[in-house]
Amino acid sequence: MADQTVNQHTLPPNPEKATLEGRNKFLGFWFFLGGETVLFASLFGTYLGLRGGVVSGPGPDDLFHLPLVFIMTMILLTSSLTSVFAIISMKRGNYKGLLVWMWVTVALGLAFLGLEIYEFYEYYHYGLGFTTSAFASSFYTLVGTHGAHVAFGIGWIVTLLIRYRKTGLTLTNAPKFYVAVLYWHFIDVVWVFIFSVVYLMGYGG
């Protein structure tokens, strides 16, 4: 079963999948992402069904300003790339590189999250409260759930980075980092649809 005899303590080509635990984690996490796809689809569908329900509150074209969204998109996209660098460093056996790139990813994530909070704050001052209209509720729920995912991801990666700051790469922590990076990419996948469907279509249509 687990007997793909790992040559002890030397770096395998895919350290995240070198043990049965690692392979289980890898597979289970992908399946979880499959479920998350439906989770976000439900939120997108709700938003799209309700986005016309503006009533007397502000609507998408009163609120959205593209430059901010563009900057947020670029930040998140770049953080996706830095997490790719982290994994490449891991496979090269460069543990320090892994840690550094992950910290960069976290920093970019924090910047994104800060901008998102600023954005919500702005909208609130334009008169878009959470309970103002069905559009408002569904917008905040969709984008907010994404934001919550970003926040959770940051907390998760920081925990890993602090816990494993001195241990070096092991067969136990390699899958953990790898899976956290998968999660981070998925956050970016969702964001691609958010900026396209919510912001660009809201602004243009």
């Binding site: 030397t10 090269r92 790469l169 067969l171």
Partner: peptide, 22 residues
């Protein structure tokens, strides 16, 4: 599972093979 003696929390050392590096 024949990896009894293996310690999963020991740091991995060494460089990847030439092929992997390429």
């Amino acid at each position: 599972m024949g990896q009894h003696g293996m310690d999963p929390s020991a740091p991995l050392t060494g460089k990847p093979s030439k092929k992997t590096q390429r």
